[in-house]
Design a binder for these strands. Structure first.
Lengths: 190, 190
DNA sequence: CCAGCATACGGAGACTGTCTCCGCTTTGGC
DNA sequence: GCCAAAGCGGAGACAGTCTCCGTATGCTGG
């Protein structure tokens, strides 16, 4: 790639990061081009579809989820608390930019999605944390499924503008549903 | 309202129902006006914001959720199965039109939303079913919260194009998280 | 060093969608 | 039938997406 092309590309991503943070992922691409001081043609050559630009921007903070997983692994305490804290971190990060949660969560498991690499980071971060609690979990609890559940909560929180204390009990339900506990036949009244 | 105005209004809603079903809630309003054989001005006078039109269209099938709650109440069997079946019905109905799930779920609890009446129907349907299982539920389980959780699953299912057998286990997790069972200190290993 | 070409730029503009304004038409009470 | 009031509808302003192509620029081999 030519040096000027590389420079333009970098500047576009940089500006897009700001604009997306300000306005969400629906922001006008032409405005991004304007603020990056390139023509729309240049932007669309580098990023033919909106998703490609989102992808580039998203990489950075998907990495933060990965880092949060490491933090989660280093925490001590009972499984319920550890998982709850991790889920809260996950929701917090994934809702950092408006509209990010739906985008990431709905692309989970879609191997043709332009942001599939991001999804893989999320799934594997989730996988690492879940593995560390595996004995306490119900059988058949699967990384993608939990990502979807927690991502669903994140989506609702994001689009509904929910505060952390409204989100926590919902995540509590998910944690309880995921933990094994003694539930032989799931019959509450003996 | 004048008779011709009423006629136009009805035709717009009728056409909108079809178009939304075909193309989701992002469909062009001008096209709806075109197919209803009215001018855009007419459409926008009756429904100043897109939401108002959506609201009118949504009424019909939100009522179906209400009916599904009655069916749920008439079903027999253990709480887990009853709730799971109801949740599945709920998700099925709410995802009937693409994009409907996010819209309804994110408006839950927002008393200024133009579709707040729809949300109330959902919440109260959920409430009726939950009440019928109240003794089996954890304390503090709240109608809106469960609507959000199940709505979150619905949103993910909707936007990710998930099939029923991918959704069921997720709902299973939610049901298990909502049911009381014996979980004194939430300690998995006795 | 510079010629020449592949590469990249950028802006005009086609196209689509949203929404408003206002002159014209229709309705319904008198 | 008359005539306000109510309603209609389309032209068009505005914004966003995306493409095409004439022009400019970085790079490389001589």
């Amino acid at each position: 790639m030519r040096a000027d092309a590389q420079r333009n590309r970098d500047r576009i991503v940089e500006v897009a990061r700001e604009v997306f943070r300000e306005q969400g992922y629906d922001a006008s691409l032409d405005e991004i081009a304007r603020r990056a001081e390139v023509g729309p043609g240049t932007l669309y050559r580098h990023f033919p579809r909106r998703e490609n630009l989102v992808d580039a921007v998203m990489q950075a903070w998907v990495d933060r989820v990965d880092a949060a997983a490491d933090v989660a692994l280093s925490r001590t305490g009972p499984p319920r608390e550890r998982l709850l804290a991790w889920f809260e971190d996950y929701v917090g990060l994934i809702t950092l930019h408006r509209g990010g949660a739906v985008k990431l969560t709905s692309a989970l498991g879609d191997e043709t999605s332009p942001i599939r690499t991001k999804c893989r980071v999320l799934t594997s971060a989730m996988g690492r944390v879940l593995d560390s609690e595996r004995p306490a979990l119900r059988e058949g609890v699967d990384d993608v499924q939990v990502c979807r559940l927690v991502g669903g909560v994140a989506t609702v929180a994001d689009s509904g503008g929910l505060a952390a204390d409204q989100v926590r009990p919902m995540l509590g339900v998910v944690v309880d549903g995921v933990l094994a506990l003694e539930r032989a036949g799931a019959v509450p009244t003996p």
